[in-house]
């Protein structure tokens, strides 16, 4: 259960022209420890934003470090961090959660990153190196200049890393090749833009790679609704009716009318905010429920009703 910590911005450093590294700390409280692949949630004026931690969990010195790529102006989370946050500022940060843990039983770990998707692997590689386990990195970026942590990776994991700066077709062909002929017990981790992940996932299916050995962290929920529509909700136990507007999640709407559905991740990953469906069609957008479960349940943080639905609340 994540809780909010009041932290100070200790350092801001340029990682590339568009990516900055932020270091948060506290003089008052010991920061909770975290694992490789964990993220923190920043509470920003435009809402909550999640970023992977890039520190080595075993060598954490009361600091959380994240890397943020600027993809918006100051009205968006990344632009706000780049333009409006300075050294010495205070910021509210939820304690770390982890939806992308390492599978330490792996005989060998293979990381595939594209762009800013490198961040969880920076932490994972440092951890694995410290405990002396076997891993390798395949990292695609548009060029060395745009490649976050290029120098860091070259310094600390030179023999374990391959960079892919070539043209798209060649890049895809080489990345697919890197997925092939893996020995048993190898776990694969993917993090990057949806198109990158889909290509590699699809190829892993073609190779009949066992699904439980492939792990992915997506920047966005599994299914993104481009044009969310409003819908009506009936709660059959508490006998309430309300509308969820296009800009609102069902979870938020429930909280607004005082129905205290528990939640954790708000991205359709953890399953905490599950509710029972009594009647109606649902657009499932989570990556947690099984196909059978989706018949009678939905995750209120990302999934939406179509038209009019009835819930067992």
């Amino acid at each position: 259960m994540a809780y909010a910590l009041q932290l100070t911005v200790k350092k801001i450093e340029n990682e590339t022209d568009t990516i900055k590294r932020f270091t948060f700390t506290s003089d008052e409280i010991p920061l909770p420890s975290f694992g490789a692949g964990a993220h923190v949630t920043l509470h920003l004026p435009m809402g909550r934003r999640q970023y992977s931690l890039v520190n080595n969990p075993l060598e954490m010195k009361n600091e959380y470090v994240i890397a943020v790529k600027k993809i918006s102006d100051h009205n968006g989370g990344s632009g706000y961090l780049h333009e409006c946050i300075g050294q010495g500022d205070n910021i509210s940060v939820s304690s770390p959660d982890n939806f992308f843990p390492l599978r330490t039983e792996a005989k060998h770990h293979v990381f595939f990153a594209a762009g800013i998707g490198i961040t969880p692997f920076v932490s994972m590689m440092a951890y694995l190196k410290t405990i002396g386990r076997s891993f390798e990195l395949h990292y695609a970026a548009s060029g060395e200049r745009e490649c976050a942590f290029h120098g860091h990776i070259q310094t600390h994991f030179p023999s374990k890393s391959t960079f892919y700066f070539m043209k798209r077709e060649e890049k895809i062909a080489k990345l697919k090749k890197a997925l092939q002929n893996r020995t048993m017990g190898t776990h694969i981790y993917l993090c990057g833009p949806p198109a990158f992940m889909d290509i590699l996932l699809e190829h892993s299916h073609e190779l009949r790679y066992p699904e439980k050995f492939i792990h992915e962290e997506r920047f966005q929920p599994e299914v993104r609704i481009e044009n969310p529509q409003p819908f009506f909700v009936n709660l059959v136990k508490t006998k309430k009716t309300f509308m969820v507007s296009s800009g609102q999640t069902l979870l938020n709407a429930l909280h607004e009318i005082g129905i205290d559905v528990p939640y954790t991740c708000r991205m359709g990953v953890c399953g905490t905010c599950e509710v029972g469906i009594e009647e109606g069609d649902v657009l499932h957008c989570d990556s947690f429920l099984t196909e059978e479960e989706k018949v009678g349940k939905m995750l209120t943080c990302v999934s939406r009703g179509i038209g009019h639905i009835k819930l067992r609340l």
Binding site: M1, N98, T264, G271
Partner: peptide, 11 residues
């Protein structure tokens, strides 16, 4: 088992 596997750090 699923409940346990969903427990998040710190709880």
């Amino acid at each position: 088992e699923r409940f346990i596997s969903k427990i998040q750090p710190g709880a």
